[in-house]
């Protein structure tokens, strides 16, 4: 049991890699889709809508199978790891787009009017006023999506990526005790999820502290130290 631990940890590492890369792709796509979806012009909003509806409608596994098994026949052979990340990112990004759109639209109207009064352009308004407020609102649902993505990554073994589930399955078929081996799989996934949630909670506290809400983010206990070092933000 103990000497196969490195194998499990290897699987955990692959799962974490896919989760992080998929989340990065999903986050970028969420912002793209969400900002397009909250635009003023109707046809720009339509682009965001089409992406969202399409990739929310197809199951991630179907998309993965399509990318991995079907696409080679029209001349594109993807690395399985890349296909996995792409499918998960595109799928979760579609859900994330709705989160971003909702959070951006929920920023109070007066804030937007104030930016107009201050003669800010679109980029300034988004970067300095809208996104920091929307970010705090979108983090909790984004955290849920991150867990969904991590759980969704368990299917990548079906397109030959050797993630945690794949490793566990191999260990099981080479004679590991059924309950122990699969119990370990559940435990590892649970721990990964709790670690990810801890990270998201940290980001939530930071985002709220930046807006001056909630319990202060304790980086510098004494105000006297603030002028010397700079807080690094």
């Amino acid at each position: 049991m103990l000497n196969s631990l490195p194998l499990y940890l290897n699987g955990v590492w692959v799962t974490v890699q896919i989760t992080v890369a998929g989340a990065a792709l999903a986050l970028a796509l969420s912002f793209a889709a969400g900002l397009l979806g909250s635009a003023r012009r109707r046809w720009i909003r339509a682009i965001g809508r089409v992406y969202t509806e399409f990739f929310r409608g197809v199951a991630a596994l179907v998309l993965m199978y399509w990318l991995f098994y079907a696409l080679p026949y029209v001349g594109f052979r993807l690395d399985p790891m890349f296909a996995a990340i792409l499918a998960l990112g595109l799928n979760v990004g579609a859900y994330g787009g709705e989160v971003v759109r909702g959070a951006v639209n929920a920023v109070p109207r007066a804030q937007i009017e104030a930016t107009t009064a201050l003669n800010m352009g679109y980029v300034q308004r988004m970067r300095l006023v809208v996104i920091p407020q929307a970010w705090a609102a979108m983090l909790p649902p984004m955290g849920n999506l991150l867990i969904e993505l991590m759980k969704g990554s368990a299917v990548v073994g079906l397109i030959t990526v050797s993630d945690l589930t794949f490793v566990v399955r191999q260990q099981w078929s080479s004679g590991g005790d059924t309950l122990v081996v699969w119990g370990l799989a559940l435990l590892f996934y649970f721990l990964i999820a709790q670690a990810l949630l801890l990270g998201v909670r940290y980001l939530e506290r930071r985002a709220n502290a930046r807006l001056g809400r909630g319990p202060a983010f304790r980086a510098a206990p004494e105000p006297a130290a603030a002028s010397a070092g700079g807080s690094g933000r």
Partner: peptide, 16 residues
């Protein structure tokens, strides 16, 4: 249940 993958749960039920 919510923070572990459905696929693994299916395997656990099916093999367990």
């Amino acid at each position: 249940i919510r923070s572990t993958p459905l696929l693994v749960q299916l395997f656990v039920l099916y093999f367990g």
